[in-house]
Design a protein around this nucleic acid. Sequence first.
RNA 1: GCGAAAGUGGCGGAAUUGGUAUACGCGCUAGAUUUAGGAUCUAGUGCCCGAAAGGGCUUGGGGGUUCGAGUCCCCCCUUUCGCACCA
Length: 963
Amino acid sequence: MSTIPIKGTYDFSKIEEKWRTHWQKNKVYKTIGPGEDGFIEGKPKCYILDMFPYPSGAGLHIGHPKGYIASDIYSRYKRMQGFNVLHPMGFDSFGLPAEQYAIEHNVHPAIITEENIDSIRSQLQFLGLSFDWDREIATSREDFYRWSQWIFTQLFDCYFDTDDIWQDGQGRAIHGRAKKIEDLELKFAEGKSYTEADRKILGEFADTSWGALKTADQKAVLNNYRLAYQQEVVVNWCPGLGTVLANEEVTNDGRSERGDFRVYRKPLKQWIMRITDYAARLLEDLDAPLEDRNGSPFALDWPEPIKIMQRNWIGQSFGAEVRFDIIDPMDGEIAGQLPVFTTRPDTLFGATFMVIAPQHPLIDSQKTSYLVPDEWPTNALDGWRGQEPRLDIREAIRKYIDTAATEVAVDQDKKEKTGIFCGIYARNPVNGEEIPIFVADYVSMDYGSGAIMAVPAHDERDHAFALAYGLKIVSVVEGDGQRDDQCYSGSGIAINSPVIGDSAFAINGLKSKEAKNKIIAELTETGLGKEAVHYKLRDWIFSRQRYWGEPFPLATHSEGYSITLDPPVVLPAMDDFRPETSDDPSRPVSPPLHRAGSEWATIEVDGETYQRELNVMPQWAGSCWYFLRFIDPLNSDVFCDKAKEGYFMPVDLYIGGAEHAVLHLLYARFWHKVLYDLDHISTPEPFKKLFNQGMITADAFQDERGVYIDIREVEFRDEVPYERGTDKKLTKSTGKMGKRYKNGLPPEEIGAEFGVDTLRLYEMYMGPLEASAPWSMEGIRGMQRFLQRVWRNFVDQDRLVKIGEGIEPELDKKLHQTIEKVTAHIEGLRFNTAIAALIELNNELVSLDKVPEAIARPFLQLLAPLAPHIAEEIWELADFAGEGVGMQEWPVSDPQKLVEDRVVLPIQVNGKVRDKIEVALSMNEDEIKELVLTLDSVKKHVADVGQIKRFILVPGKIVNIVV
RNA sequence: GCGAAAGUGGCGGAAUUGGUAUACGCGCUAGAUUUAGGAUCUAGUGCCCGAAAGGGCUUGGGGGUUCGAGUCCCCCCUUUCGCACCA
């Protein structure tokens, strides 16, 4: 085990230590941007970004840096190609993980976060990653989060003008853009009319002109437009964590992803981001030809599966909004209208009932729209009365609503449909038929209008409900594979619908698509509905009831409206930063900043008293824009200098895990577009090329109680795993590397045993970067052997380089083929095959006494991005000129030397390889045919020439004789 | 249920537009060198039959297109990931 350093052997730890120190001390990888000393005008840039880590207390294991190694190789390669590479690193240090860790270890997050950052930074430096550490940022530092707060004020002080259709440099028409809220105020002052939502808020002042409104009422209207707005919404309240969670932070069985506590639905006033306004643009720009403000075109080069996930998440669907008249059960008059969204307007004639969500205002007894009669209508079937048919109707509905409301946020596997009749009927606009309205929890308030028209013959859910409640099923579409007793949700031909002459909605006999168009046209004509587009995407709840996050730069007036405060709003130092947790979902919500005291919470602005906002922002806030701060991290005047931003953006390569496929990437794109609309930045999208690296998986071992045993405590006897020194047999499983599974190894441990260059190479050699692959302690030795062989090929026992003159033409050809391959493979992020090509070339060098200089230089250059320490060391020993191999120009292959003049041609008979011949590439078909037919191996299978049906020659590739 | 990705030796994996399947590495076998080696070097290594020459088979399974299929088309199986009453 002991490595006695024999003179001249490859002493990786000394070499790596030496170069690591050299790079850091001399700031070799410092990036110089526009306006800074030494900036070279006209030098092309390349912005290579990693998804920054949160500074966990556990530190990094060897699985973490896979993506960082990849981006480092690419960065070093691009530098050698003459690019001004920006390759920064920072820390996502606000948020739950840091706070939870602080709570567990009873240390203040402000302290533990910086400690963790220090240790992770040194881990990253140990790996020889070429970050420019002068640009380090951390989202929890005041000089960073003041700008997160500033961006929030931008979102607060703007609105999305849907009516503005504008053109980008490509001439593409874009619908809607963010504008300053003052523009909207001006429009109102000039007489812009209020929307229905505005009027609702204004109540008795709905007809008052803008100028005559009180400030509070004006602000209340503006809240309807701001991209960051406040609203009481039903949220996922997790008393166990003492905070609200985003939908995506809640698991399928209604528990918190972090901590595994129960989550409840609770109405709460929250700050929300109006991301839905950007749904169409976020969707469109995934594939659109884009252009930055310097006129350079680009398009998103993202993995298709990630684009698909984003498309699904945004969930655009086309259809129609149809308004059904509601009939007041008391007097039979039309009491209002119930708008529904449907993707199948062609099935309107099959709508036999309607369903509304439990939160729908029609059945909210507190609202004026409440229409539930005081008795069960006589024509209501018994089965329509729900679980407790004896209850009177209002009581029964109230009970049903209550149950639905308190139920765990997401209810899985709840296939059987429940619901109850509301006692109210609606009139189908296309045929005047009166149909009952049910309330059921399979319809949710936050999609569409919270109400649906139910077409049991052609919708699975409606079908199930109709069967359970004995409702009419009318088939109106006839299509392939349809069965009488089942619902048919495909398209086909309209049936059981009016024929021409009977109705304006005559669609009988039309194909589904035509029927849709006709219905939509007619609905629009008659004012009963219109074409509509809906999105699954919801607005983004932005408040967290925690301590360790950005405070909102907001304060609230006693009349209820909020104003922005100038950042920074410094997070108050608090000894007790813990959230108030409990098991009781009904306890009032009180964020930790409550305890900062009224001295902090109360603030005076222009002689008026305001209360500071006590929620903080979610962890996403910092990661929505951190890549912009890297460009200009020390600027204290603006979040990012415009000239620098214009030079470095967009990010050319963004490497990170696929777990951020939707949320982080969608949120960051959203903020970016707002900043773009407000002309703070120059690109409509932040990340040009995205790449998701795969995981490194590892075996994990559990004892019979299911307790994980540290992999270092596992030993194998006859291939059976045991806990070291005991008779305890263990069971093996394979999966994610992590602290939980006790199967993660720290990079320092592997680096000390095998060397950092070896570790880097092995992680890249394990397979394609995007794939997951299992760690193997045997496999890594192969890479160590490779580097040892490189060392021995170049350096002798006395630590003298073995570099010579001259070069064999065959080896020269091999060199140029290798340059060609390595360049293409690194460019395509296929490092595994790049390394394989280098191994092949290196194996050719083993038999030589001296490596020709004409090979040595380019070989070390090709190796430098992958294994930088050893490459630098040999380059220095060889006394090659320049400031190190990493500063050399990337080698270029000579196309002349790549040309093959002779080629081995496989000879097939009936598709089976029977022989191989080496021929000059210049030989023509007749010559080859003549030659091939003289071969014994061919004669054996081709009795006589007359049998040959076809003679196929693919020049330079293959010969196939068909007999 | 919907959507996506993947399935190649004992193992990790390679293979532009269909054109020598198994590059490269691990492991294994034999030999060399060495006091020793988890060092190094050389040779071999997909599977089956065969002493050999040689032959047959092989990219999850089954069909198809083609002179020729890991690659294209259809059906099925398995694994992983994402979404999930979205009207």
